[in-house]
Every structure is written in C-alpha cells, then in structure tokens.
Design a protein around this nucleic acid. Structure first.
Lengths: 153, 153
DNA sequence: GTAGATGCAAAATCTTTGCATATTG
DNA sequence: CAATATGCAAAGATTTTGCATCTAC
C-alpha cells in the first residue's frame, strides 16, 4: 500500500487521477530500471493488451510532471525513463554503447563546484556521461593516437 | 589554408572527398557554436539554396566520423552538433531550457575518479549536465520543498 | 455529473534509404 | 574513368494532436 499510496496521493495533489494505465506504466518503469517509451509499452501490453502507445507517452509525461519518473538521453535514440528512486549516473560508452551505472555521490564535489561557480544546481540523478569504457579503451586509444600523430604532421 | 587544409587532409585520410557542401556544413557548425541539423541546414541554405537536408545529415555524419564535429543531446529534441575545437561542458536548465557553458577542465577531478574507479575514460567535450540554473533556483527550490514536506507527512 | 483520461486515427517531426545524376580526384 | 557525393522522393521511426468516448471521484 506504500507504493500505491504514494502514487495516489501524489497524483491527487496535482489534480490528476489514478488510472490502471498509470499504475502499469509506473510499475513497468520501476521493473525495467530504465526504458524507452516503446519498451514500457511492450511491458505494459504484456498485462493489458489494449493500452495504446499514446497513453504511454501521456502517462510518462504525467508521472514525470509529478516527479515519480525522470528521463535521460543515453544516446542517439529515444529517451529512457526511470523511477525517481532509481538514482545513479550512467556511463555511456560511445564506442560499444555499453551503459555502466555508478552512484550519484561521485558527483558531489562537481556539484558543489558548479553551485559556487555558476549558481547551477546539478541534478546528478538525470545524468548520462559519455566516454570510453574499460573494454574499448585499448582500441580507441590506438585509433586516437594514430590520428593525432598523423594530424601533427 | 590552415582550416581548409585540415578538412581536406582529414577527409582524404579517410578516403572521403572534399565537396562544397561539406565545407559549408563545417563552416556552419563552427559559426553556430552548436546547432541542430535543421539549424545547420538553414545556415547553409543562406549561402547555397539548393543544398538538401539529406546532405546535411550525411555531411554531419561524415564530419563526425573523421572527428571534426561531435554531437550532444542537450534536451528532449534533436541533437546539437559542434566543432571539435569548440570544447566546453553544457549546463542545461531543465526548467527554463537555458544553456550555459563552462570549461571542460572543471571535470578533471571527476574524470580521474571515474578512470580509477571504473576504468571509464570520460569525454568531457561531449557533455551536457542537467540541473537548475541560478535564475530558476528560487522557484524550483520552493516547489521541491513544498512537495518534499507534504510527502514526508 | 464533470473534469480529466483513454483509444484511435491522423498529422507532424525527425531521420534514413534507394536510385538516378552529378562531381571529385 | 571510377569511386563517391548529391538531390529528390519516398519510406521509416518516433512523438504529438484532435476528438469522441469512457472513467475516476
């Protein structure tokens, strides 16, 4: 009842209604960790066949408005949604596409720096950092090196 | 001839050809700082009316392949491309959409941390950090506070 | 009962692809 | 001349909108 209570009260506080579709969407997001609207749709459909993709988009928007889910852009494609409580920073390898997750508090120092320097309040729970993962580093370094050397002369 | 030389040699090294369209696209990206394919298209069109949006996409891909431009996802919409030399971190306000830019080296410590911890080589030049800008912090904080208080009881 | 949500179909975006033609090296 | 790039039209993919119907409260 805890989870449900949270959804119900949070929706009500914003003058929104509790519907089975919204419950299912929130459940799907929580179960999937992070997922695109399409993935959420598929998940929801496995329980309720008739739910339309339009409803998924609208439910995700609604849940995001009230702060129960967030979205992040992990790569080229569609945004991925995740539950509010599912907090971590994504490390996206631009080479192989692999996504690693690390705790948000690794960014505490940076957050403090940005706050002081620019008055910017970093939201580390939204974050995707791109770079090269351990596995790809060997090859990638070689590539860059070759290019850099040729470039210099 | 420096700029042009770089484009020419870099393209050639990858077995690609120098075309007016590619030059214009690269120029546009450099002039615009960061821009969506559509914005690049408009810019290029102001000089060469007939250049097709398809060509913009292909040119951006080509230039990205050879490392002269990169793209970042700043928000919901289209990716924005920027020139390789145009390095900075974007601070994207999820409230008002404003984009601030700060030097990459603010992330040096974090990069070192991630390298040691996860073997991940952070590419700070690709980066968009989301959060709340100074201007929006007042309102946003109030919002969160209200919500947090109600949530707790 | 009424405001708000859903489903469906259609439109709007954004991006990619196929192919004939044109251009670069 | 041969390999590549471009333009155009059409197809794909993703997301949004309009509207009639339905549902939560």
């Amino acid at each position: 009842m805890g989870e449900t209570g949270s959804l119900r009260t949070t929706l009500h506080r914003h003058g929104m209604r509790v519907t089975p579709q919204r419950r299912l969407v929130l459940d799907a997001v929580r179960e999937l960790g992070h997922a695109t609207p399409d993935q959420v749709h598929r998940r929801v459909r496995s329980t309720a066949r008739t739910v339309n993709i339009t409803t998924i988009y609208r439910a995700l928007d609604a849940l995001e408005d009230i702060g129960l889910v967030r979205h992040t852009h992990l790569g080229h494609g569609a945004p991925t949604y995740s539950a509010d409580e599912h907090e971590h920073v994504h490390l996206v390898c631009h080479r192989c596409g692999e996504i690693d997750e690390v705790p948000c508090d690794l960014l505490d120092d940076l957050a403090e720096l940005l706050r002081r320097r620019s008055g910017f309040e970093l939201d580390a729970t939204h974050l995707a950092l791109s770079g090269t993962c351990r596995g790809c580093r060997g090859t990638d370094d070689a590539d860059h090196l070759e290019r850099a050397v040729e470039e210099t002369r």
